[in-house]
Write a protein that binds this DNA or RNA. Sequence first.
RNA 1: GUGGAUGUAGUUCAAUGGCAGAGCGCCGGAUUGUGGUUCCGGUCGUUGCGGGUUCGAGCCCCGUCAUCCACCCCA
Length: 416
Amino acid sequence: MKYKIPRGTYDIFPKDSARWHHVIDTFRRVAQSFGYEEITTPIFEMAEVFERSSGESSDVVQKEMYRFQDQKGRSFALRPEGTAGVVRAYVENHLDRVGGKSKFYYIGPMFRYDRPQAGRYRQFYQYGIEFIGSNNPYYDAEVIALEMQFLAELGLKNVSLEINSVGCAQCSEDYDEALRAYYKPHMDGLCPDCQKRYHVRPRRLQDCKAAYCRTLKAAAPSQLDYLDQDCKEHFTQVKSYLDQMDVKYQVNPGIVRGLDYYTNTAFELIVDALGAQNSIAGGGRYNSLISQFGGKDTAAIGFAGGFERLLLALEKEGIAGYEPIKPRVYLIGIGEAVRAMAIEYLSKLRKDGIYVEYNPDKSSFRAQMKAADASGARYALIIGEDELAAKMPTLKDLESSQQHSVDYRQLLDILN
RNA sequence: GUGGAUGUAGUUCAAUGGCAGAGCGCCGGAUUGUGGUUCCGGUCGUUGCGGGUUCGAGCCCCGUCAUCCACCCCA
């Protein structure tokens, strides 16, 4: 075995392809029914696009980005997430000047250099939604409702929606300060990870699993108490829209998104059965990102979901993929003498859109009948010496075991 | 990036340091023109890779690669 697939990547064979298509088709259909249209951006961008948007300090940028330089020494990166590219495209094409609302969906591979694990890959596929152009809490709810409807149509049951508000930049800063003040006296007892978190992202302190850190969490200040009037009102309205749309959720002040650009609404979809990698989708509002990219101050909200984890979750619930497509008829040719007639029927049927299977490597009638049966075809079309002489093939119904000779028109009638 | 487990036929799994095996699958046959069930026969291996210990290594040791689990992070 000379060549091996790169670590953290995988091949999708036809056996799985049908399931992928089903999931993707469903997503497209639901997105379109909400008025979203597809946008496709490059798989790589200038490294800065991601550094600026995700935040220089985020893990994604710090250690997980695939960076490379091109022949002229310019620094690029394989995209670790989808939003930055969409926002870059939006601003670059002056959609912020045009005004109005943009509703995008995207589907494609993302790349992160991370240690692979079940549900975690170095190249993985995401589907995502970006709504740009309004701060109306209605759109927060719309985007979430879209995702929930998508999952419902796939038949996924055991998934929970957790929402939070991280407020605007000001609320967020106030809260970080409050957290630092709270944790400061306990610094020495914190685990090494949390000592780092204290400086970089204090809110991360709250979902630490170390015993001592966890005891501190109970009395820690909550983000929700540090929202200003507008942010509080926004969050209340989002929840109220969700109620009206009959979307069930759980408020979880611990929800912290990993990318720095989120403001106000943040949410995550959790499937407990998935183990450590239990988040199948996540997103939130990013009201300051477009202006950060040099565009007009424009509010936006979006989310991304992971196909691999979604597929795993569907599997856990026993929601099988699609059955492989079976041939309608299996062509059996007995002996060299009839080959020309067999090929003639094969070609004609295929031109008429019938899925015919045929295997020239099988010799005996018996072996071909076995193969016909194994193929799952309903009919076997038999062409041997007798049929050649009569210029009429025999069609056998493999379910009823009935057979009779047919001319081409009869054959088509039955197969259609 | 850290800690741990695993790696044997296409696949699922056996094999006390002593001849690498079984089920399933695959191929062929049981009336040379009739499938499913059954029966018979056959094919299938650099034991992930590279070193070491040993008379002898699938098994013990070291390294490496990959997968899985947890941490971390997140989709």
